Amino acid sequence: MADYREISQAYAQSGINAGFILNGGAAVACLSQFADLYPLELLDKFTVGMLAWAGGVFLAALVWAIAFVSARYVDKADDESNQQHIETSNKWMFAGLILVLMSYVCFVGGVISIALQFDAF
Protein backbone atom coordinates (compact mmCIF):
# COMPACT_ATOMS: atom_id res chain seq x y z
CA MET A 1 0.00 0.00 0.00
CA ALA A 2 1.27 3.45 -0.88
CA ASP A 3 2.24 5.81 1.93
CA TYR A 4 0.62 9.01 0.72
CA ARG A 5 2.46 11.12 3.29
CA GLU A 6 5.84 10.03 1.90
CA ILE A 7 4.64 10.54 -1.66
CA SER A 8 3.41 14.05 -0.79
CA GLN A 9 6.72 14.87 0.87
CA ALA A 10 8.65 13.69 -2.18
CA TYR A 11 6.53 15.87 -4.47
CA ALA A 12 6.96 18.84 -2.15
CA GLN A 13 10.73 18.38 -2.03
CA SER A 14 10.86 18.18 -5.82
CA GLY A 15 8.79 21.34 -6.15
CA ILE A 16 10.99 23.27 -3.74
CA ASN A 17 14.13 22.00 -5.47
CA ALA A 18 12.72 23.07 -8.82
CA GLY A 19 12.30 26.62 -7.49
CA PHE A 20 15.92 26.65 -6.31
CA ILE A 21 17.31 25.10 -9.48
CA LEU A 22 15.37 27.24 -11.96
CA ASN A 23 16.06 30.56 -10.28
CA GLY A 24 19.53 29.81 -8.95
CA GLY A 25 20.62 28.22 -12.22
CA ALA A 26 19.41 31.19 -14.24
CA ALA A 27 21.23 33.62 -11.95
CA VAL A 28 24.45 31.60 -12.07
CA ALA A 29 24.24 31.34 -15.85
CA CYS A 30 23.99 35.13 -16.15
CA LEU A 31 26.68 35.75 -13.55
CA SER A 32 29.04 33.50 -15.47
CA GLN A 33 28.71 35.83 -18.47
CA PHE A 34 29.18 39.14 -16.65
CA ALA A 35 32.88 39.38 -17.49
CA ASP A 36 32.01 39.37 -21.19
CA LEU A 37 29.00 41.66 -20.80
CA TYR A 38 30.75 44.33 -18.74
CA PRO A 39 32.89 45.74 -21.58
CA LEU A 40 29.78 45.87 -23.77
CA GLU A 41 27.93 47.87 -21.09
CA LEU A 42 25.05 45.38 -21.03
CA LEU A 43 24.93 44.63 -17.31
CA ASP A 44 22.02 47.00 -16.69
CA LYS A 45 19.83 44.83 -18.95
CA PHE A 46 20.06 41.98 -16.44
CA THR A 47 19.10 43.88 -13.28
CA VAL A 48 15.39 43.04 -13.22
CA GLY A 49 16.00 39.42 -14.17
CA MET A 50 18.61 38.95 -11.46
CA LEU A 51 16.31 40.53 -8.87
CA ALA A 52 13.45 38.27 -9.96
CA TRP A 53 15.64 35.17 -9.69
CA ALA A 54 16.93 36.24 -6.28
CA GLY A 55 13.31 36.61 -5.20
CA GLY A 56 12.55 33.17 -6.59
CA VAL A 57 15.36 31.60 -4.58
CA PHE A 58 14.15 33.42 -1.46
CA LEU A 59 10.59 32.16 -2.00
CA ALA A 60 11.82 28.59 -2.47
CA ALA A 61 13.74 28.86 0.82
CA LEU A 62 10.67 30.28 2.52
CA VAL A 63 8.62 27.33 1.27
CA TRP A 64 10.95 25.00 3.12
CA ALA A 65 10.14 26.76 6.40
CA ILE A 66 6.41 26.66 5.66
CA ALA A 67 6.59 22.96 4.78
CA PHE A 68 8.33 22.31 8.09
CA VAL A 69 5.53 24.04 10.02
CA SER A 70 2.90 22.14 8.04
CA ALA A 71 4.59 18.81 8.80
CA ARG A 72 4.79 19.65 12.50
CA TYR A 73 1.02 20.22 12.59
CA VAL A 74 0.50 16.81 10.98
CA ASP A 75 2.69 15.30 13.71
CA LYS A 76 0.70 17.15 16.39
CA ALA A 77 -2.52 15.85 14.88
CA ASP A 78 -1.19 12.29 15.09
CA ASP A 79 0.01 12.75 18.67
CA GLU A 80 -3.10 14.51 19.96
CA SER A 81 -5.78 13.03 17.65
CA ASN A 82 -6.90 16.57 16.85
CA GLN A 83 -8.48 17.16 13.43
CA GLN A 84 -8.04 20.92 13.79
CA HIS A 85 -4.27 20.48 13.49
CA ILE A 86 -4.79 18.81 10.11
CA GLU A 87 -6.80 21.81 8.96
CA THR A 88 -4.03 24.12 10.14
CA SER A 89 -1.46 21.97 8.35
CA ASN A 90 -3.51 22.18 5.16
CA LYS A 91 -3.54 25.98 5.37
CA TRP A 92 0.26 26.05 5.71
CA MET A 93 0.57 23.55 2.87
CA PHE A 94 -1.60 25.73 0.61
CA ALA A 95 0.54 28.77 1.48
CA GLY A 96 3.65 26.80 0.56
CA LEU A 97 2.11 25.75 -2.74
CA ILE A 98 1.30 29.35 -3.60
CA LEU A 99 4.85 30.47 -2.74
CA VAL A 100 6.51 27.74 -4.79
CA LEU A 101 4.31 28.70 -7.75
CA MET A 102 5.35 32.33 -7.19
CA SER A 103 8.96 31.14 -7.30
CA TYR A 104 8.29 29.68 -10.74
CA VAL A 105 6.67 32.96 -11.79
CA CYS A 106 9.85 34.76 -10.68
CA PHE A 107 11.86 32.53 -13.01
CA VAL A 108 9.59 33.19 -15.97
CA GLY A 109 9.45 36.90 -15.14
CA GLY A 110 13.23 37.12 -15.04
CA VAL A 111 13.58 35.39 -18.38
CA ILE A 112 10.93 37.58 -20.01
CA SER A 113 12.41 40.78 -18.58
CA ILE A 114 15.81 39.98 -20.06
CA ALA A 115 14.32 38.90 -23.36
CA LEU A 116 12.40 42.18 -23.56
CA GLN A 117 15.60 44.14 -22.88
CA PHE A 118 17.10 42.57 -26.00
CA ASP A 119 13.89 42.95 -28.03
CA ALA A 120 13.55 39.19 -28.40
CA PHE A 121 9.76 39.40 -28.80
Rank of each mutant, 00 (worst) to 15 (best):
D119E: 15
K45G: 01
V57D: 00
T47H: 11
Q83T: 09
F118Y: 07
R5C: 07
E87K: 13
A67P: 03
K45D: 02
L101S: 11
Q117Y: 01
M1L: 13
D78I: 09
D119H: 14
G55R: 01
Q33I: 06
L99Q: 07
F34H: 05
N90V: 03
I16G: 04
F68Q: 15
V74N: 06
S70Y: 04
G19M: 04
I7L: 14
A26T: 01
V28S: 05
M50N: 12
Q84A: 10
I66Q: 08
S89H: 06
F68G: 11
S70W: 06
Q84M: 04
H85M: 13
Q33E: 15
Q83I: 15
V69P: 02
Q117K: 11
A18I: 08
Q117L: 03
Q117R: 07
A95L: 11
E87W: 06
V69R: 10
L42Q: 15
I86K: 08
M50I: 15
A71D: 12
V63E: 06
Q9W: 08
Q117D: 08
F118Q: 00
Q83R: 13
E41D: 15
L37E: 09
C106D: 06
F118C: 01
Y104E: 07
Q9L: 12
A12Y: 03
L99G: 02
D36F: 13
Q13P: 02
I66R: 07
G19A: 02
V57E: 01
W92M: 07
Q13A: 13
Q117T: 06
L116F: 10
C30T: 14
V105K: 02
I86P: 05
Y73A: 06
A115S: 07
S14I: 07
H85S: 09
T88I: 09
S70F: 03
V74P: 04
Y11Q: 10
D36Y: 14
T47E: 15
A77P: 03
E6S: 11
G49S: 12
L51I: 14
L59T: 03
M50G: 07
Q33D: 10
A52E: 15
F58W: 14
F20H: 09
L43A: 11
I112G: 00
Y73D: 10
Y104G: 13
A120L: 14
D44Q: 13
A2V: 15
L43Q: 10
A115Y: 02
W53G: 00
L59W: 02
L99P: 04
N17H: 12
S70N: 10
A71Y: 12
V57A: 04
L51K: 13
C106F: 04
Q84C: 00
N23D: 05
S113E: 00
F58I: 15
V28D: 09
L101D: 08
A77I: 05
A77W: 05
M50F: 11
G15Y: 08
L62R: 14
W64P: 00
Y104V: 08
M50W: 03
I16F: 03
Q9E: 12
